[in-house]
Amino acid sequence: MADSYPVQDEAYGEKPRRRRGRRALVVLVILLLVLAGLLVVADRVAAGVAERMVAEQVDKEISRKNIQSTAPEVTVGGFPFLTQVLDGRYDSVKVLLRDVQGPVEGTEATVKVPELTVDARDVTASLDTLRSGQGEVTAKTVQGTGTVTYDSVVALIDRPGVQLREQEGKLGVTAPVQVPIINQELTVQGTANVTVDGDDIVIAFDRLSSADLPDNPVIQTFVNNFARQLTVRVPLPPLPFALQLHEVRPLPNGLSVTASASDVALSEVS
C-alpha cells in the first residue's frame, strides 16, 4: 500500500501540468489570430486612405477635362496592400465614373456614358506621395471601357422615329421615311458601318430596305440617299488619362467603347 502512494502523487502532478500546457497553446493561437486580424484591418485602412487620395486627384484630373460625372470610386487591388506601399508599386487601381456626359459642340445634344471603368495596371506611387498628396501617380497601362447610350446617338442623328439596336453583332436601324415620288411613308431597316476616327465614333448607313419598297430604281436611290443622311459622328466626352478610343461594338444597351493608353500620369499635383 505504501509503495503505491508515489505513483498516485506522480499521476496527480502530471495532469495539471498538461492542462496548463494546453491552455498556453490555446492562448498563443488566440493571440496570433488577433494579431493577424489587426494586420488585416490595418492593411484595409491603409488601402482606404490610398483610395481616397487617388479619388481626389482623379476628380481634379477629370475636372480639368470638363467632364461631368459622379465622384470617382477607386479600388486599389492586390493583397497585402502594405507591402505594395513599401515597394511603391501596385498591382492595379480601378476607377469607376458614373453618369459621365459631355455636350456636343455646335448642338444641344449630350453624349451620355452611364458608366466608365478605368483599369490602371502596374501603378507607381511613392510613400511620400500617398502621405502628402503631393507628387505623381503613374500607370504603365490603362484601359477604359464604357457604353454610349443609343438615346445619345439618336439625338445626334436628329431624325424623328429613328430607332437603333444591336442586330446579330451589328448596329441596326429602323426609321420612317416619306417618299414624295409615291406620296407614301415607308419604314426602312438596315445595318450600319461603325468605325473609330480619333475620339469620334462614326456611324454610316449605306443601304436601307423595306418590305414595302417598290422595285423602282429611282425610289431605291431616294432611300439610299436618305440612308446616307443618317450618317453621324458621335464625339465622346473628353476621356481622362490620355485614353485613346480604339474599339466600338454594338450591344443591346448601347455602343460599347474601349480605349487604352500607356505610361499615363493618373494624377499630378504641383
Rank of each mutant, 00 (worst) to 15 (best):
V194N: 03
Q189C: 00
L35H: 05
K15D: 02
R98L: 07
N216V: 04
T195Q: 04
K140S: 03
I201K: 06
M53Y: 14
R18F: 11
V218P: 00
D197M: 00
D200L: 11
A155Y: 03
R89V: 13
M1H: 10
I181S: 01
S132K: 11
E61H: 14
D197S: 13
L28K: 08
A24Q: 03
V100L: 04
I201D: 00
V123C: 05
E247N: 08
A42I: 03
G77K: 11
P103L: 03
G190W: 11
S69D: 01
R159S: 07
I219T: 02
P252R: 10
E168N: 09
T149M: 06
L236V: 06
G144M: 04
T231F: 07
T124R: 12
V153T: 02
A155H: 08
T149N: 02
T231G: 12
T195K: 05
T107K: 10
R207K: 13
V95I: 14
K94V: 10
Q189I: 03
A242L: 10
K94F: 02
V269Y: 09
F226I: 07
R18C: 08
Q229I: 01
V45S: 01
V93P: 06
P160M: 01
V40L: 13
T258D: 04
G172C: 07
V234P: 04
V232T: 13
L130N: 04
D199E: 09
L245G: 09
